[in-house]
C-alpha cells in the first residue's frame, strides 16, 4: 500500500485548517459522517495527506485506520497532491496495444515523477486510468478536460507546453 508521507501541515493556511475543523464540527456525532466529511475536506485541502487524516480521525473520534481504510478504498480520494493540470493516460487494452506504455514512460522521465504523483511545483499530475471508451483514438491521454488522440511520444513535449505556466519541462 502506498505509504503516506508525514508532514507538519504547514502547507495549509490557518483559514484552510479552520474550514476543515468547521466541517468536522458540523458532522460530529452523525452516523456515516466519515465519507461526506472527507469529501468536503478534500475540496478544501485538495488532497488528504496524513496530517489531514489524523485531524479528521481525532475530530470525529474514529480510529485513524478507519479513515485510512476509507480514503484508500474510494478512488475519488487522493493522498497525493494533484497537479494544476492533471494528465490521465488511458491504459485500456486498445491504448496499451498502441503504445500507451511508451507515453507513460516518457512522461515519467520528463516530469521526473511516478504514476500518482505530481511535480514539485504542482504544475502537472500524472495518473493512469482504465479504458476511457475512446479506443478508436488510441492511444489517448486526457489533460484537464481535453482529449489528445493518437499521441506519439515525440509529440508529448509539444502537448505539455500548451499547459505549462512558468514550469520548465525538460525534453528527455
Amino acid at each position: 500500500m502506498e505509504r503516506v508521507e508525514e508532514s507538519s501541515g504547514a502547507e495549509f493556511s490557518a483559514q484552510q485548517w479552520q474550514d476543515v475543523d468547521g466541517i468536522i464540527d458540523q458532522h460530529r456525532g452523525q452516523p456515516g459522517a466519515l465519507i461526506p466529511v472527507l469529501e468536503e475536506v478534500q475540496a478544501v485541502t485538495g488532497y488528504l495527506p496524513a496530517v489531514v487524516q489524523r485531524r479528521v480521525a481525532r475530530g470525529l473520534g474514529l480510529p485513524l485506520s478507519r479513515v485510512y481504510g476509507v480514503v484508500t478504498f474510494y478512488s475519488f480520494f487522493t493522498m497525493k497532491p494533484r497537479g494544476r493540470h492533471q494528465i490521465r493516460i488511458c491504459t485500456g487494452t486498445a491504448c496499451h496495444v498502441r503504445g500507451a506504455q511508451r507515453n507513460v514512460n516518457q512522461l515519467k522521465t520528463s516530469l521526473g515523477i511516478e504514476i500518482g504523483e505530481c511535480t514539485d511545483d504542482r504544475e502537472f499530475g500524472l495518473e493512469t486510468v482504465r479504458c476511457l471508451g475512446a479506443c478508436g483514438l488510441a492511444p489517448v491521454l486526457v489533460i484537464d478536460q481535453d482529449t489528445h488522440r493518437q499521441v506519439k511520444k515525440e509529440q508529448l513535449p509539444q502537448i505539455l507546453r500548451q499547459y505549462q505556466g512558468a514550469a520548465e519541462v525538460s525534453e528527455g
Binding site: 502506498e2 503516506v4 487524516q53 478507519r66 481504510g69
Partner: peptide, 25 residues
Amino acid sequence: AQVQGVNLLTPAGRGFDARVVPALG
C-alpha cells in the same frame, strides 16, 4: 480492534491493490 482496542490494522485499497496494513501504511 475488538480485543486490543488499538485499531491499528485495516484493510486498505481495493481490487488487485487491496491489502491489510497498519493505518497510513
